[in-house]
């Protein structure tokens, strides 16, 4: 009986610690594409900080706005100074939940569809966002990927070229490989 109790305790502890594991990365990627005309207006942030809890799907993505890298330095300067005001508002984040985390087996390799619900804060304005994506598990390493669109006016981002060279609706793509 003692042996059974011991094994049961061990199994429960192992299961519990795995389920409550916090997966994290400091080098996730967030892309955005705001191309509205011929000139490509797109950037990537390779220092995205993200964590999610295996048990309840609580998730956070955080970026430093000045960390977005454009191919064109002048475009990057305009993005920071004239549109995002990143000196005044240096961060953007998404805080929410993977609502179907119970359908993701983090111990088994595969690609699982995920649904995310939460609050996106950009330019100091917070709005509710729902989106879908995938969680790919390979060798115990989860990788989350998803994309969604936001309207710049919903986040009080205004500027001369929005609606012309800059698309009024921006596509944001997130790709994070966790440890």
């Amino acid at each position: 009986m003692t042996k059974i109790t011991l094994i049961a305790t061990f199994v429960l502890t192992a299961f519990s610690s795995n389920a409550q594991k916090v997966y994290a990365t400091k080098t996730g990627q967030v892309f955005f594409n705001a191309t509205g005309g011929l000139e490509k207006i797109a950037a990537v942030n390779n220092q995205t900080d993200s964590k999610f809890v295996g048990e309840n799907g609580q998730v956070i993505f955080a970026v430093l706005v000045k960390g977005f890298k454009f191919e064109n330095q002048l475009m990057e300067d305009h993005f920071n100074e004239n549109y995002m005001e990143s000196t005044k508002i240096p961060k953007a984040d998404f805080k929410g939940f993977i609502t179907n985390i119970k359908e993701v087996n983090l111990a088994k390799d595969g690609t699982y569809p995920v649904n995310l619900d939460g609050n996106l804060t950009v330019h100091g304005v917070t709005n509710k966002v729902s989106t879908t994506g995938t969680m790919k598990v390979a060798g115990g390493v989860p990788e989350m990927e998803g994309a969604f669109k936001i309207k710049l006016k919903d986040y009080n981002v205004t500027g001369l070229y929005i609606g012309e060279k800059i698309a009024p609706e921006v596509t944001i793509t997130v790709k994070c490989k966790y440890q």
Partner: peptide, 13 residues
């Protein structure tokens, strides 16, 4: 390098 701000760590790129 360039200081980009602070998340969990101070970020330099």
């Amino acid at each position: 390098g360039f200081c980009k701000g602070f998340l969990s760590d101070v970020v330099i790129t």
